[in-house]
């Protein structure tokens, strides 16, 4: 198909506009973190770095960050195990209900977060609480892991499909047992897919607010919850803005890692 010159320019323009649409709001947050005006008057009348020092000293933000990291690591670990297991089962075997299993894995992320959230909340209140298990960090990890399984599953499944079963068969033909095949053949093939899946799972968990709201016990405050609870307090606005700016800058790190790890440009599948 030959596109006319004007069609190419139109597409190029659409791309540029789209990227501007995506990045301008983020740029504004970065700029505003130095805006001396407390209510972010635009254009900024003066500049300051005061908000950055204040955010740095904010204990609430730091504790919330640590809580988010713990929840993310827990959920990622569970998702890695469960997601890989399902991926192996779906790729290697033909069984009754195979399509249903792959739909089931997808369901927690396909259904709105509020549904997953209040379903788990209801279950915890009416089933787990009588058993003596109260909501806390544990329930947050359970909630996050449930929708993180799918990203690990997708990455591992894609890699298994691409690599096929020939290597494993060759390994078995050469006399390796199942454990050796897994250790020397299957795992190395999967390693970068697992890392990409883990990265995405951690990212999803780190950013999650809706499910967290419903599954967090008292005193469990992840970073998004902390941001949200401070969002409507006018005198906290500059500090929130700095935390937002930090998160925007920090989002480059996982992208960089994903690029290094992954052979596909997208750095793993959603």
């Amino acid at each position: 198909m030959t596109l006319s010159r004007s069609a190419r320019w139109l597409l190029r323009g659409a791309m540029a506009l789209g990227l501007a649409f995506i990045y301008l709001p983020l740029a504004i947050v970065l700029v505003n973190s130095f805006n001396a005006d407390r209510t972010f008057a635009w254009p900024p009348p003066r500049w300051t770095t005061e908000w950055w020092t204040r955010a740095w000293d904010n204990a609430g933000a730091r504790e919330a960050l640590w809580m988010s990291v713990k929840a993310g690591l827990g959920a990622t670990a569970i998702a890695l195990v469960l997601g890989s297991l399902v991926a192996f089962a779906v790729q290697r075997y033909r069984f009754f209900g195979r399509d249903t299993v792959s739909l089931l894995v997808l369901l927690p992320i396909a259904l709105p977060g509020i549904v997953t959230g209040i379903a788990l909340d209801t279950a915890f209140r009416s089933v787990m609480a009588p058993l003596g298990v109260e909501k806390g960090l544990f329930s947050v990890i359970v909630g996050h892991a449930t929708f993180c399984v799918v990203v690990v599953y997708n990455n591992v499944l894609a890699r298994l499909r691409r690599s096929g079963g020939n290597l494993q068969e060759a390994s078995a033909d050469l006399g390796a047992d199942g454990l050796q095949t897994f250790r020397y053949v299957t795992f190395p093939v999967l390693r970068s897919a697992l890392l990409a899946g883990a990265l995405l799972a951690f990212g999803l968990s780190f950013d999650e607010i809706i499910v967290t709201t419903f599954t967090a016990g008292p005193g469990v405050q992840t970073l998004p919850i902390w941001i949200f609870s401070n969002l409507f307090r006018p005198n906290q606005a500059p500090v929130i803005n700095v935390v937002a700016a930090v998160l925007i800058v920090a989002s480059v790190v996982p992208i960089y890692l994903a690029q290094r790890l992954s052979d596909t440009a997208t750095g793993g599948r959603l």
Binding site: P25, L26, I28, V29, G203, F206, D207, I209, L223, P224, I227, F228, L231, I240, N241, A244, L247, I248, S251, V252, P254, I255
Partner: peptide, 10 residues
Amino acid sequence: WASYLVKAYA
């Protein structure tokens, strides 16, 4: 990768 809240906040 930039937080959902951060973008809504922006």
